[in-house]
Simulated assay, not measured.
Amino acid sequence: MDLLMILKAIILGLVEGVTEFAPVSSTGHMIIVDDMWLKSGEVLTKHVANTFKVVIQLGSILAVVITFWDRFIGFLGLGPQGKHAVPGQGRLKLMPVIVGLIPAGVLGVLFNSYIDDHLFSTITVLIGLVLGAVLMILADLFGPKTPKTETVDQITYKQAITVGLVQCLSLWPGFSRSGSTISGGVLVGMSHRAAADFTFIMAVPIMAGASFLSLMKNWHYLTVADLPFFIAGFISAFLFALISIRFFLKLINKVKLIPFAVYRILLAIVIYFIYF
């Protein structure tokens, strides 16, 4: 594998890391960037390319785990210093996350093959970018002006299952996991920051699950020669995600969702004229 392919992996990792935590669709951006690169003559097999797009999300997952380390330790019933917290406290904090994961988790398992085979394309991403932008605009316009839920610890089971149902929209590439779930959270009374925190925490198991399924399905297509490509993308995604997640969490309560929605629509228009 030559240096140009390693550079491609680093660029795709950068795109994944920077966009994973903004409501603009990291998968959609990777599909668009990769399709543009393929036109230059550097071609990966479909199975390797699609697996790479999912697997480098593991770098972003690691960035989330590091950022929310105290929270994940809390799920185990431990305090931030490793001391035992109030009995059952970790379990109670974890339950809304589990409830929120169920809808998209079930649909993701049932339709994983169909999504991989039919929805990873530029045209489906354009559709997802625009429809996701509409949802985000509606969330900012019609969500409660005074949020009932300011922190992730205050999220109710009703809010969690509603966000989980809205998250199912993100199975369509381009819709954006964070865009759909933050929008759903805002519509049911969460602050933008609480919805973002909840979104990123839920992302760890669902992204890890998607990566595992893709690896299991396409493992036999991968070779030792592909390892440098995957490793470079993983490291790139991790480093850029670690930076972008902290920036986004400071930004989201100030700018809300509409600026990101406008960007998505403009991006869709530009890509449409480039391709069609």
Results as ranks from 00 to 15, higher is better:
residue 209 G to V: 04
residue 203 A to Q: 08
residue 242 L to A: 12
residue 234 F to K: 10
residue 226 D to I: 10
residue 210 A to H: 00
residue 241 A to S: 15
residue 235 I to C: 11
residue 188 V to D: 00
residue 254 K to C: 02
residue 228 P to Q: 09
residue 238 F to H: 01
residue 191 S to F: 04
residue 252 I to W: 01
residue 218 N to A: 09
residue 223 T to R: 10
residue 214 S to H: 13
residue 233 G to Q: 04
residue 215 L to V: 08
residue 226 D to N: 15
residue 214 S to R: 13
residue 193 R to V: 13
residue 192 H to V: 11
residue 247 F to Y: 10
residue 219 W to F: 15
residue 205 P to I: 11
residue 189 G to E: 06
residue 252 I to H: 01
residue 200 F to P: 07
residue 193 R to M: 07
residue 213 L to T: 09
residue 228 P to G: 03
residue 191 S to C: 08
residue 192 H to P: 13
residue 204 V to C: 02
residue 215 L to W: 12
residue 219 W to A: 15
residue 189 G to W: 02
residue 234 F to N: 10
residue 199 T to Y: 01
residue 202 M to E: 05
residue 220 H to A: 14
residue 254 K to H: 07
residue 197 D to R: 03
residue 208 A to T: 14
residue 218 N to Y: 10
residue 200 F to T: 04
residue 234 F to G: 06
residue 238 F to D: 05
residue 202 M to V: 08
residue 197 D to V: 05
residue 212 F to A: 09
residue 231 I to T: 10
residue 227 L to I: 15
residue 230 F to L: 12
residue 214 S to Y: 09
residue 198 F to I: 05
residue 197 D to E: 14
residue 219 W to Y: 15
residue 245 I to N: 04
residue 199 T to N: 03
residue 199 T to E: 03
residue 218 N to R: 07
residue 213 L to C: 05
residue 244 S to V: 01
residue 188 V to F: 05
residue 191 S to T: 10
residue 203 A to V: 14
residue 225 A to V: 05
residue 236 S to C: 14
residue 225 A to T: 11
residue 254 K to D: 03
residue 248 F to M: 14
residue 232 A to K: 14
residue 219 W to R: 13
residue 222 L to V: 09
residue 223 T to C: 06
residue 205 P to T: 10
residue 251 L to E: 09
residue 208 A to E: 05
residue 227 L to P: 12
residue 240 F to L: 15
residue 222 L to W: 07
residue 190 M to W: 01
residue 206 I to Q: 00
residue 194 A to M: 00
residue 229 F to C: 08
residue 234 F to W: 13
residue 225 A to L: 12
residue 208 A to C: 09
residue 205 P to C: 07
residue 223 T to L: 12
residue 213 L to H: 04
residue 195 A to Y: 00
residue 233 G to K: 05
residue 208 A to R: 07
residue 210 A to T: 03
residue 218 N to D: 14
residue 205 P to D: 06
residue 209 G to C: 05
residue 238 F to V: 06
residue 192 H to W: 09
residue 189 G to P: 06
residue 196 A to L: 11
residue 213 L to S: 08
residue 236 S to N: 11
residue 223 T to H: 13
residue 250 K to F: 13
residue 243 I to H: 06
residue 215 L to F: 11
